[in-house]
């Protein structure tokens, strides 16, 4: 199996995120930096280190769908917004408002909204006009630390230390309405990923669950249990929904492949492979490439690895 090692961070790497063109990978770390890696002649080359925004760990990083913006969220409570100027990403604004550590940042599909979430239990939605970002809304629907956020078009989902998922939709009365889902995870929800109408959650209860988004609810389809012995920090669908991967504190990465579709049209996923000892320590994030079957992963052991599932 083909695997490339990307080594330059000086401390644990929290998250990796692909540029929508599938050629650039962003990573963020406790070393307070964001690094951009570009695929050139089958090799990843470090093309930029963004170190002028955060004074503490950078916990989350996300490209907008058009690639124009990059957002970063740090334990220094700051959300950084970076813009591509034709050659580099440049810091254009530092959004302040969170009361404590920012845990997640994410762009809506139309790039009009940036969401951030964190330990202050809130989700902030930011909008922008003439490249000037300002706060659109502060949502405090969770009872605890909000660990992750994920957009599906212009609907936002968040997962929390309170074991629940909350969905936010922009209502008729110009307010963000929310609905909470108790989805039977026994512990913190660490990640949410969405492919079409499928929603994948991973949890500190060592399970992952697949749901179907329908009629405004989350219908459980499959629970993945027994594959990991420690919290599963991250889950990611491949661009076509054929695979999803899970990364866990047990240092392993597991990959599941769609092997059947039931009579109701719901897919079933089966274990395809497990990368044992993928890393020396916790796997913090797994992220499938938006164009192919490259799987970017990162860990507490300071390393980033990109696996090619086709080889």
């Amino acid at each position: 199996m083909n695997c490339q090692l990307l080594k330059d961070h000086k401390e644990r790497v929290w998250q990796v995120a692909w540029h929508p063109n599938g050629q650039i990978l962003a990573s963020c770390s406790s070393d307070k930096t964001i690094k951009l890696w570009q695929l050139m002649n089958d090799q990843y080359k470090l093309i930029q280190t963004l170190d002028e925004c955060h004074t503490k760990s950078v916990r989350s990083v996300s490209f907008s769908k058009d690639g124009q913006f990059l957002a970063s969220g740090g334990f220094d409570t700051v959300v950084g917004v970076w813009m591509y100027d034709g050659s580099k990403y440049k810091l254009i604004q530092q959004l302040e408002g969170h009361e404590s550590e920012v845990k997640g940042v994410a762009w809506s599909a139309d790039s009009n909204y940036l969401a951030s979430c964190g330990r202050d239990k809130t989700v902030w939605i930011w909008d922008h006009e003439d490249l000037e970002f300002s706060c659109n809304c502060v949502l405090q629907a969770h009872d605890e630390d909000v660990k992750c956020i994920k957009w599906k078009d212009t609907t936002l989902y968040s997962g929390s230390y309170d074991n629940s998922v909350i969905r936010y939709t922009y209502g008729e009365d110009d307010e963000w309405d929310h609905k909470q889902f108790q989805i039977e995870h026994q512990s913190t929800i660490w990640s949410i990923d969405i492919f079409n109408k499928l929603l994948l959650t991973t949890s500190a209860d060592c399970t992952a669950k697949v749901f179907s988004i329908q009629d405004g609810t989350l219908k459980p389809i499959q629970t993945l249990q027994g594959f990991h012995k420690e919290p599963i920090y991250s889950g990611s669908f491949s661009y076509d929904g054929l695979y999803f991967a899970l990364g866990s504190a047990d240092n392993k990465i597991s990959v599941f492949k769609k092997d059947a579709i039931d009579e109701l049209g719901y897919p079933h996923y089966a274990l395809d492979q497990i990368f044992k000892d993928a890393f020396e320590f916790d796997v913090n994030c797994v992220a499938f490439n938006p164009k192919n079957y490259l799987l970017a992963t990162c860990s507490d052991d300071e390393n980033i690895k990109v696996f090619n599932l086709q080889l």
Binding site: L95, E96, G97, W124, S134, C135, N136, C137, V138
Partner: peptide, 14 residues
Amino acid sequence: FGLKNIANLVSQIK
């Protein structure tokens, strides 16, 4: 009034 507007005010001051 409200945190979101406070955040935008603070940004103006900064």
